[in-house]
Design a binder for these strands. Structure first.
Lengths: 153, 153
DNA sequence: ATACGACCTCAACTTCACTTGAGGTCAAGA
DNA sequence: TCTTGACCTCAAGTGAAGTTGAGGTCGTAT
């Protein structure tokens, strides 16, 4: 391990450092960069160097994921920050407010489902077209086919 | 199309019939069968024939999926029905009660998350180890890596 | 006799969020 | 000098829940 040059304190970070400080794997950092969620420049030896604000960005990404926001959406949101600057408290407020609306809706859907389940336990109907549990047509926007990832870790 | 022989009324169903009556695609029925969620016998011409209770089974599967239960878990649950019989109201009660507990927990986690989000909007902390949003260590069982599918359709 | 629709199998593709592996570079310490 | 460790790239694999497609069979209607 290289001795930390005092001149390098509070300078840019290597992938390994970012991984350690952010708690995500190196491969994940590569992956996020490939998806445009974070950016880096290269050292003379072709190694990635990240500005320190990458840590805040990764924090935002992780929270958004817990909220159930897909990476592609997070990427878009982060791109609304002009010139790729560090998200400020104000930015975070804006982003999180949008995501909160999503979260609220998701909670509402699940709650409705639970209530329906309670009502239907033991009824045994489950008929297509009659049982409320089988009919999600209320408040469901069209999803394309394929799996959907909205998991509250 | 074959004229429906009166003798065949309330007999077993072909894939196409099951698809139409259950509202799922033929390919999905093949898929469910390959996963052991449903079973069929074969006609003389090697075509699948499903006992009518497959419709009830598929209904249960679909509801469970809306609750966020993965197919593998549903398969296991269906296997607890001795000799692969049709789920009765009683069985359904048992299964749905178990799944409801899951659902309750999921709702609780999301709600907590939302509250945390409200508290944290604008605070801008998000520090690993301090911000409650970044620390899911409470009531989170260990998940392995990789994506998780628990989506309330 | 033939065309048609419904069925069959099996393999490969899709999306998402990553991980794993193979093979190679670079700089520092023993 | 050599080895170690951190880094690099690019390709392929994972798992969930299916979908899509190619190529073939079966049975009935015209």
């Amino acid at each position: 391990m290289a001795i930390l040059d005092p001149a390098d304190i509070d300078k840019d970070l290597s992938v390994g450092e970012v991984a350690e400080r952010s708690g995500v794997a190196v491969s994940t950092i590569h992956f996020y960069e490939s998806k445009g969620l974070i950016t880096s420049w290269r050292s003379s030896g072709n190694q990635r160097r990240f500005p320190r604000d990458v840590l805040r960005r990764i924090a935002v990404i992780k929270v958004a994921q817990r909220l159930g926001v897909p990476l592609a959406t997070i990427a878009q949101a982060l791109k609304t920050l002009p010139d790729g600057r560090t998200p400020t408290a104000e930015d975070w407020k804006r982003l999180s407010a949008a995501w909160k609306a999503d979260l609220d809706e998701r909670i509402a859907v699940l709650t409705k489902l639970r209530d329906g389940l309670e009502d239907c336990i033991g009824c045994g109907c489950l008929s297509l077209g009659e049982c409320p549990l089988r009919n999600p047509w209320d408040e469901l926007s069209e999803d394309g086919p394929g799996p959907r990832l909205l998991d509250p870790r």
